[in-house]
Simulated scan of single mutants.
Amino acid sequence: MTDWDIRMQTGLRIKELRAAADLSQDDLAYAIDMSRSYLAEVETGKRNISLQNLERIARGLGITLDEFFDSGYFRRGADA
């Protein structure tokens, strides 16, 4: 797996969870005090997100980092 792959999978996972929570990028970014443009770049794999920011996003989605990673999503791949 390349750095790009893990960034893309992470971004797609965030987007999936955000959509399931019925939140727009603006709504989530505002709730966690993060710029919408940064969040958009994370979701598209253009940013290498820090663990601190990933935790902020997870909390904003109402989940823990354990739940973010324990879904099986990263084991099966983003397009499975």
Rank of each mutant, 00 (worst) to 15 (best):
E55G: 03
R18H: 01
R47F: 03
A21K: 12
Q25A: 06
G60N: 02
A21N: 14
L51M: 05
L51N: 04
G72N: 02
I63D: 01
R47Q: 07
T64G: 08
T64N: 09
L17V: 04
Q9I: 14
D33G: 00
K46V: 11
K15D: 13
N48R: 04
A58P: 01
S71C: 07
M8E: 14
R56K: 14
G77L: 13
L54V: 05
A31D: 12
M1W: 08
L54Q: 02
E16T: 02
R76V: 07
L12Q: 11
Q25M: 12
I14C: 11
L65R: 05
T2G: 12
W4R: 15
A19S: 14
A80N: 05
R75Q: 13
Y30G: 08
G62Y: 02
L54F: 08
R7C: 13
G60T: 10
D66P: 00
Q9K: 13
M1V: 09
D79A: 13
S71Y: 10
S37H: 10
Y38F: 02
M8I: 15
A40S: 08
R76Q: 10
I49L: 06
G11V: 10
L61T: 04
N48P: 04
E41T: 10
N48H: 03
A21C: 10
N53F: 04
D79V: 14
A21M: 05
M8V: 15
M1H: 08
A20F: 12
M8R: 15
Y73S: 00
D22M: 07
I49N: 01
Q25N: 08
A19R: 13
N53S: 01
I6C: 12
I32K: 07
M1S: 09
D26A: 14
S71M: 03
L51G: 06
E67S: 06
